[in-house]
Simulated scan of single mutants.
Amino acid sequence: MSKVTIVGVGSVGAACAMAIVAQRRCSELVLYDVNTDLVEGEAMDLQHAYAFHGVAVKAANGWQDTSGSDIIVITAGARQKPGESRLELNGRNAAIMKSIVPNLVMHSHTAVIIVVSNPCDVMAKMVHDMSFLPPGRVLGSGTYLDSSRFRSFVAKRLNVDPVHVHGLIVGEHGDSTEELCDMHSCVVSSAQDIIAKRGYTSSGIGFTVSRLVDKILRDSHSVVPVSTSVKGLFGITEDVFLSVPCVIGRSGVERVLQIQMSPEELQKLRDSATRIASA
């Protein structure tokens, strides 16, 4: 038996819920949102398909309904507007985190928390500090989706199956990352391209979170690029979260892999840390 709670059931939260249910990642899924009609409607809609997916879906009537969660996914926050950087969301979403994190930890003090809300790296660090949870138990979805986008772009360029393309985007999950090449530029700008066309992104991150949930619950010890504390790593002195290759399992981030980087790549990573620290 496994229980997952999603906090925030807007477009991203709903996409995460759909992917988790469709792929049967847990036995119980709890949805929480301040918009009670929205969360009840979303839960009812998914629960009506229980005969097909077998996941019990429930709309939380209060924080007590999130009790005993194995994993908490936080997607709550303001939506990124066309032309707005993720870092510009910082002030608006910080207040939201302060209102929800203590309640979540009170009822699920052994949970692993996945922070999706943007700016992901900043919010993950904030949630970690407010939760007082052990290191590794709070992580940001980080550049896991960026890495999938990169693999898709490489596969399209080479006309091969994306499953057989391996590569990681590390550093900051955001649009202020410096451009290394045309393909990397496509990864960085892809979210803004989607936002310009349909107003928001959701499907990609939904499947990304579903995959993370699966890897954590299965204690897979998989290597994925997620946002975690990097202070003291790669010559970084700032107390920030950035995406680096992490081994994840049932306790969240178990360890960070110290991959080799060129001096130029290390400097770019350190520059990202400085930028995040000043956000």
Score class of each variant (00 low, 15 high):
Ser11Glu: 09
Ile74Ala: 03
Leu38Thr: 06
Gly41Ile: 02
Phe52Asn: 13
Ser27Gly: 10
Ala49Trp: 08
Val73Asn: 11
Gln64Tyr: 08
Ser67Cys: 08
Cys16Met: 11
Tyr50Trp: 01
Val39Gly: 02
Glu40Tyr: 05
Ser27Pro: 09
Val55Phe: 02
Glu42Lys: 15
Val9Met: 09
Val34Cys: 01
Gln47Phe: 09
Met18Pro: 08
Ser11Ile: 12
Ala15Thr: 13
Asn61Ser: 14
Val12Pro: 14
Ala22Thr: 10
Arg24Asp: 03
Ile74Asn: 05
Thr36Ile: 09
Glu40Thr: 09
Asn61Phe: 06
Ala49Val: 11
Phe52Glu: 06
Ser11Lys: 11
Cys16Ser: 10
Ala56Thr: 14
Asp65Ser: 05
Met18Lys: 05
Asp37Leu: 14
Val12Asn: 13
Met44Pro: 05
Met18Cys: 10
Leu38Met: 07
Gln23Glu: 08
Asp33Pro: 05
Gly77Gln: 00
Val12Trp: 05
Arg25Pro: 01
Thr66Asp: 05
Gly62Tyr: 01
Met44Ser: 15
Gly41Cys: 00
Val39Asn: 01
Gly68Lys: 14
Gly68Val: 12
Val39Ala: 04
Cys26Asn: 07
Met44Val: 07
Arg25Leu: 00
Ala49Asn: 07
Val34Trp: 00
Asp33Gln: 08
Leu38Ser: 02
Asp37Asn: 14
Ala78Ile: 12
Arg79His: 13
Thr75Glu: 10
Asn61Arg: 11
Gly10Ser: 14
Ser27Phe: 03
Arg25Lys: 06
Ser69Lys: 04
Glu28Thr: 13
Asp45Gln: 04
Gly62Lys: 02
Gly8Met: 12
Gly62Asp: 03
Met18Val: 12
Lys58His: 15
Val9Thr: 13
Leu46Phe: 00
Ala60Arg: 02
Leu38Asp: 06
Gly13His: 04
Asn35Pro: 13
Leu31Gln: 11
Thr36His: 10
Ala17Glu: 01
Ile20Phe: 15
Asp33Cys: 01
Ala76Leu: 02
Ser69Asp: 11
Val73Pro: 08
Ile74Val: 15
Leu31Ala: 15
Gly62Leu: 00
Ala19Ser: 13
Gly68Trp: 12
Ala78Arg: 09
Val21Thr: 12
Ser27Thr: 10
Leu38Gln: 04
Ala22Phe: 15
Val30Gly: 04
Asp45Tyr: 01
Val39Phe: 00
Asp37Thr: 13
Arg24Tyr: 03
Cys16Glu: 14
Val9Asn: 05
Leu46Thr: 00
Ser67Trp: 13
Ala56Asp: 13
Cys26His: 08
Gly68Ser: 10
Gly68Asn: 15
Gly77Trp: 01
Val57Thr: 15
Val21Ser: 04
Val30Tyr: 04
Leu29Gly: 11
Val39Lys: 00
Ser69Leu: 07
Arg24Pro: 02
Val7Tyr: 04
Ala59Lys: 15
Ala76Pro: 02
Leu31Pro: 08
